[in-house]
Amino acid sequence: MAAFGTVFMPEMAISWFDGSHWSPAEMVSSNSIQLHPGAHVLHYSSTCFEGLKAFRHTDGSINIFRMDRNLERFAQSSRLLTMPAIDKDATAKMILDAVARFADDVPEPPGSMYIRPTHIGTEPAIGKAAAPTQTSCQYILLSPVGDYFSGGDTTLRLLLEENGMRCAPHMGMTKSGGNYASALRPIMQAKQEVKADQVLFCPNGDVQETGAANFLLIDGNEIITKALDDSFLHGVTRDSILTIARDMGMTVSERQLTVAELLERAAKPGCEAALSGTAAVLTSVGTLIHKGNEYKVGNGGVGSTTLKLRQALNDIQWGKTEDTHGWLTRV
């Protein structure tokens, strides 16, 4: 089976900003895009993107999960990068039209159609190292994906990194490619040196996020996760899981979590930890690696509360339970 996110629909929705107006959206081939070699994005990383999913329900309808929230963050990222402002309504229509065009290709559960809106700076101006792009392009890629857990539920190994950050603090809220690039070297080092799957960045002992997901600690009936601030990404899946946890009567504590407290709590029987994100929803963490030592989270296996929360979210996405929060947009 092809790796997650490597198969694309043959067409994508695209629109161009010429400095004053966005062009009417159109469907074009998704196998290439023409850019000037001096395009701002290629030199100064003026790029942001989103990740969301469309799901097929048993009645045959196609439903997109939390599109409004992703559009808000897409617009915010564009603004924080001082890129041309997107028209959220126009972008929403691009998404809906693209998904409708390929509705027959949306997989049955547990598969889905992954949606990747992307915004890039296109102005050919290599002298603009300290100035924003005046022109840009946005497009909507679609990728049918299978079950992220098709290989069976496994737990992750996380290296706790106290000396570095995933990205510059003022860039944390921006879903920009540069943030992911800046985390790659420490992640690759952690994979090679201690066989870690990911790095949990904890600058000065403050537990924040991994290179591509938010971190949640589940201690009994309580979920602990870092309170929202500018330094890390405000995950839509994170917000969804915390909302569902509150609905279930769990205590949600959004506050500072230190490495010392994390290691102390993780050692308790029944403690769980997980990473949240669009692709994996919730992935269990079984081992924490800190200063050359390995610490099991609970019994080191997949936690029952993690499974319960993930299933509750999947049931909403797949239309198996009522969408009481209005998270689904029917195509």
Rank of each mutant, 00 (worst) to 15 (best):
A280C: 14
Q192C: 10
S176P: 05
D323G: 03
T6D: 00
G121H: 06
E11Q: 15
K195C: 10
A168Q: 13
K93I: 03
A25Y: 07
T58S: 15
P10S: 02
Q317N: 09
M1W: 05
S253I: 13
W327D: 01
G300N: 07
S45G: 13
S150C: 11
T243N: 11
P24Y: 01
N299P: 09
M1R: 13
H21Q: 15
A85V: 08
M1H: 12
A13W: 13
A196I: 01
K175I: 09
E26H: 10
A267D: 11
G298V: 08
T306A: 04
A196S: 07
M250W: 10
E123W: 05
L263H: 11
M1F: 09
P24R: 02
L141S: 05
T287Q: 13
E50V: 00
I115P: 00
S231C: 12
F215I: 02
T133C: 13
E261S: 01
H234W: 11
G172E: 04
V331P: 00
D219K: 13
L158N: 07
E322I: 13
T287D: 08
K226Y: 07
L141W: 03
L35I: 06
M27G: 06
Y295T: 11
S143G: 02
V331A: 04
Q192W: 06
G303T: 08
Q76L: 15
Q189G: 05
A103F: 00
G249D: 02
A54E: 00
P24C: 06
R79C: 12
A212D: 11
R185K: 13
F102A: 05
P84G: 01
K93F: 04
P84D: 04
L313S: 02
A13I: 04
S23L: 09
T133P: 10
E254K: 04
Q317S: 01
E108M: 12
G151T: 07
P107G: 01
E123N: 06
L228V: 14
L282H: 01
D97H: 00
S23R: 04
S61D: 11
M1C: 08
G205R: 05
I62A: 00
V199W: 12
M83S: 02
A131D: 07
H325T: 02
L35M: 08
F17H: 15
N31F: 10
I223F: 12
V7D: 12
G152C: 04
G177Y: 09
G38F: 09
L257M: 12
I62T: 01
F232L: 15
G300I: 05
F215G: 02
V99I: 00
Y114N: 00
L262G: 10
F149Y: 15
Y295H: 15
T251D: 12
F215E: 06
V145M: 04
N63S: 13
G19Q: 07
L200I: 03
N31S: 15
T91S: 10
L263E: 10
H36K: 07
